[in-house]
């Protein structure tokens, strides 16, 4: 039997907002450890992996591993009807009837909404995701997630074709990370310096560089990744010319959301 409860719908609402525009379906793996979610976009450019440990839930009972594919658009619609302080219950019955039930209960007026979701096929997930060796990454940038989101928005408004097919070049050089894009009649560069942690200890921008790196990414995807900002105050971007870049948001003490994407290369 699977039975989970969260006393505030916000966490799950934010998770869905952070993934549902880019990924149409996801695989949800429930085990004793917690919930592991994975989704790959249809063009196999981006992968998202989420971990919410059992401790993230107010009640967590899972006595048998259960893996289910779910349609994220339908789930996002249902969750938009939920208030932030609704109590969510997630249940799957013993007979594994290929459906999962999400219940939203308003603590104020006692109204209960029940959604049953049928399992669907997924785009080839779940996948084995190795921990890539730290040493393989040329640079690592940590910054406030709101700042990263703002940068993506600024670049989108300048990019030559709006969000579509605009390329951003992220380059790290000593204590600076630059975001560069080309518009119709010019270019735009946003420079972020490493901040002194004594000034703003809560929102540092930290840059760890082994060697200079300059990589081209699709802005549309980066923009979607930046929606992880509702889940964490900080984002860590790991950059390598040989490995998928990782955009990671740690979720308090209870897990993370990681987006993977390879850079674009000259043919």
């Amino acid at each position: 039997i699977l039975e989970l409860r969260l006393v505030q719908a916000t966490l799950f609402k934010n998770v869905l907002e952070a993934i549902s525009d880019l990924f149409s379906k996801a695989n949800f793996d429930f085990s004793g450890t917690g919930l592991e979610l994975q989704a790959m976009d249809t063009s196999h450019v981006a992968l998202v992996a989420l971990l919410l440990r059992a401790e993230a839930f107010n009640h967590y009972l899972c006595d048998r591993d259960l893996s289910m594919g779910l349609n994220l658009a339908d789930m996002a619609k249902a969750f938009r009807c939920a208030n932030n302080d609704d109590i969510i219950t997630i249940k799957a019955e013993e007979d594994w009837s290929d459906t999962v039930t999400f219940t939203f209960e308003s603590p104020e007026d006692g109204e209960i909404s029940i959604f049953d979701f049928d399992f669907v096929g997924t785009n080839g997930v779940p996948l084995e995701i190795p921990e890539f060796p730290e040493s393989e990454y040329q640079a690592k940038v940590r910054m406030p997630s709101a700042k990263f989101m703002r940068i993506c928005k600024k670049l989108s408004s300048f990019g030559d074709s709006g969000d579509r097919d605009t390329v951003v070049i992220i380059s790290v050089d000593k204590e600076c990370v630059n975001f560069f894009t080309r518009g119709k009649t010019g270019t735009s560069t946003i420079v972020c310096r490493q901040t002194q942690t004594v000034d703003k200890p809560k929102e540092p921008t930290l840059i760890e560089m082994k060697e200079q790196v300059s990589l081209a990414f699709d802005l549309r995807y980066m923009n979607s990744f930046s929606k992880g900002s509702t889940l964490s105050d900080q984002v860590t971007i790991s950059l390598s010319s040989n490995l998928p870049a990782v955009f990671e948001y740690k979720i308090a003490e209870t897990g993370y959301i990681r987006y993977y994407m390879l850079p674009r290369i000259e043919e």
């Binding site: 063009s43 981006a46 084995e128 490995l243 993977y260 994407m261 850079p263 674009r264």
Partner: peptide, 14 residues
């Protein structure tokens, strides 16, 4: 424009 690489070669099915 530079070509987008796909992730397939880095991840295998569980």
């Amino acid at each position: 424009k530079p070509k987008q690489q796909v992730l397939s070669r880095f991840f295998s099915p569980k």
